[in-house]
């Protein structure tokens, strides 16, 4: 049983936030949802959580209809909003107790949330005094108190240091190991590349592309290589394609030839880079195209 979104439209006045959108999220996977601001990602998450009603289309969440079984869908799912959706004036424990009580969470789930999110040492600390990373962890811990089958993450790593980010991404991978379906939105492509099994790109409320991450990347790995040079004024670079006066773009086949020519022209090489961030490039290409349309 998957999450199946079929021909969903949601309007706010004249604005179509979602426009006949269809996509499928496989159970037990980490699903990346990409799109520029205003693409419709947050609206889709709100709808999947039962917070917002749809105007047209159907949604099936693990066998439950979004219109008929909203209460049940809310019981089996959870959202970790981008904002820190807890109470800063309460301690970590008071926050967890409150959210556990209102959802009738079991002691086992309560302890599991503390353990996975590594909160045991800061339970009695007021939430306002936590670091950015600790706050994010608390935000996430609240999200798993009800032992959800699906968790929606709305850009959960905004504004935190790389160490905390990696810890959060590791926690999310753990959720997958627990059999939880994770829907993840982020602006950081490397995060998507790191944890997602499948990715959907949406723009202006429409699905642009959906595929497994490896398919998206393998299609795009073109064997391009960037050679970073030490640029000096007066160097003749006409025979190369140079970007930003620093990078010469070439391919694996022509690498030796280019290096030889650089040597002949006394141009020093700083580093040679294999292009690996094609998802970002691909995302930008697709969303640019969609904007043009």
């Amino acid at each position: 049983m998957n999450i199946k979104v079929s021909n969903v439209t949601k309007k706010y006045g004249d604005l179509k936030a979602l426009d006949n959108l269809s996509l499928e999220i496989k159970q037990g996977t980490i699903f990346g949802l990409l799109g520029i601001n205003g693409a419709g990602k947050s609206t889709l998450l709100s709808i999947l959580n039962g917070l917002t009603d749809i105007d047209a289309g159907t949604i099936d969440v693990l066998g439950f209809d979004i219109k008929k079984d909203k209460k049940k869908i809310k019981e089996i799912s959870s959202i970790v909003p981008q904002n820190l959706a807890f109470y800063e004036k309460l301690t970590v424990k008071e926050n967890l107790d409150f959210f556990a009580d209102i959802q009738n969470a079991t002691r086992e789930n309560y302890n599991k949330a503390i353990e996975i999110s590594d909160l045991s040492k800061i339970l009695n600390q007021e939430a306002s005094t936590l670091s950015g990373g600790q706050k994010r962890k608390l935000n996430m811990a609240i999200g798993i108190l009800n032992d959800p089958q699906i968790i929606y993450f709305d850009e959960p790593t905004v504004g935190i240091d790389p160490k905390s980010r990696n810890e959060i991404l590791d926690s999310i991978k753990q959720y997958k190991n627990l059999g939880i379906t994770v829907v993840y939105t982020s602006h950081y492509m490397n995060e998507i590349e790191k944890i997602c099994d499948e990715v959907a790109i949406i723009s202006k409320g429409k699905l642009i592309e959906q595929d497994r991450l490896e398919n998206l990347l393998s299609d795009r790995i073109s064997g391009q290589i960037l050679i970073e040079i030490v640029y000096e004024n007066g160097i003749e670079l006409d025979e190369f394609t140079v970007k930003d006066n620093s990078f010469i773009e070439t391919t694996k086949d022509r690498l030796c030839e280019v290096l030889e020519k650089l040597d002949q022209n006394n141009i020093s090489v700083k580093q040679i880079k294999y292009s690996t961030t094609d998802l970002e490039k691909h995302f930008l290409e697709l969303t640019d195209e969609a904007e043009d349309v």
């Binding site: 709100s46 799912s77 959202i79 904002n83 820190l84 807890f86 959210f99 609240i142």
Partner: peptide, 17 residues
């Protein structure tokens, strides 16, 4: 307003409150 702005109300609503 903090609850609303921080999406805590939305979170509560998503918890069937």
């Amino acid at each position: 307003i903090n609850e609303r702005k921080q999406n805590t109300l939305a979170r509560l609503n998503s918890m069937n409150i």
